[in-house]
Design a protein around this nucleic acid. Sequence first.
DNA 1: TCTGGGGTCCTTTTGCCC
DNA 2: TCTGGGGCAAAAGGACCC
Length: 441
Amino acid sequence: MSRRQFAAPTRSGDDIPDDTGCTILHVDMDAFYASASLIERPDLHGRPVIIGGGGNRSVVLSATYEARRFGVTSAMPMARARRLCPQAVVLEPDFPRYSQISDAIMATFHSVTDIVEPLSLDEAFLDVGGALRRLGPPTGIAQHLRDTIADEQSITCSVGVAPTKFVAKLASSLAKPDGMIVVPQAEMLGFLHQLPVGALWGVGDRTEEALVRLGLRTVADIAHTPVETLRRALGQASGSHLHDLAWGRDERTVVRQQREKSIGADETFAHDIDDPVAIHRELLRLSDRTAARVRAAGMMGRTVSIKVRFADFTTITRARTLRDPTDVSQEIYATARSLFDALGLQRARIRLVGVRMEGLVESEGAPIQGLLDEPDHGWREADRAVDQASARFGAGAVRPASLVHEVRNGGAGRNQRAERGPQGSRGPGPRAGRPPASGPA
DNA sequence: TCTGGGGTCCTTTTGCCC
DNA sequence: TCTGGGGCAAAAGGACCC
């Protein structure tokens, strides 16, 4: 194995890091989507590869380190990435595959400790405090995880080992790729204070600008600034939080997976559109998709919110809280559409629309209210039939009539992403068991 | 250069009730 | 009857993360 170990800092005089009290691990896969895609394409190893959608408005999801050497970074527009690295091979993302690999990696984490907090498909915090007697010191556990994941998944990862979540996360990012950094308690401040402010978790472009305006460029600068000054510049919560982090104070514990607080879907059009009928159709599709995911999670939501992004990238949101929580596609769509219509837009050019359910509660025990226009065999039963058909024939096997019409006619200029994949791949069928007129009338 | 899609959290504003 | 203020929840916007 060529994986780097114990990259920094170490106890003086030997190569064994002092990991006393470093019970928090942050494990982060290296270029996860790209690495996962290359498992099926070993011929591309060592070459610049970019994972991203084919649409004219897509961005880079992930890139191999060979591509990153040309300046390609994630979230960069694909058009720019292709210009920077024209020889790169571009692959479409394969989310079901990434999910599978992620499940296997999370299972490896759980073989070490049951206190695992996933942050996304490819990274997690682990609290190994309870596993020390059984498995040895934290660095040994971290190395075991790195070896196991490399052997079983052929993907390398980087690990930060520290007394707090925040420092563990910083350490793993500095260890990339394929490395491990241990930050003992005694060396934490020295480690932190040399870093630029942008390294702090929660400091993005805007906050960094605000800090630089105050003349603060390093974490040490923040640490030595009165907390009141930070609060005035960044707000109460952010100011105090950053000051604490700069002194290594981070009381947050590793918490097991939590339930989502919101579920939603949005979509950027391939070209800006101003046709209200096309926008209603998109709201119907997104409401349908969101509702199906809410039901699949065994949840119901009380607040429906929509997002509209205009051609100039300004974005607005509108929300309405219902009397009772719902998971009914039709009710979510009706609310989303009424929120949109209330904007009173006069053919404004729109780039993106989204639908989101908030205020989620477990559907078990949630009050279920009949809808005003509910027929004998209601929307709820119809949704259940749609879910069953989707489970059997694939998502999108059953869809509202207005969307069937749209598929036959080749769509309304949406980004490519939604035109492919499981949706629509089995051909549009009639919406079985669905009450009539579910589309935008 | 021209900006995805999935989320979370924080701040400010607004409206309602007492 | 009108007004003001506190408390609260919802709405809206924005920053941030992967």
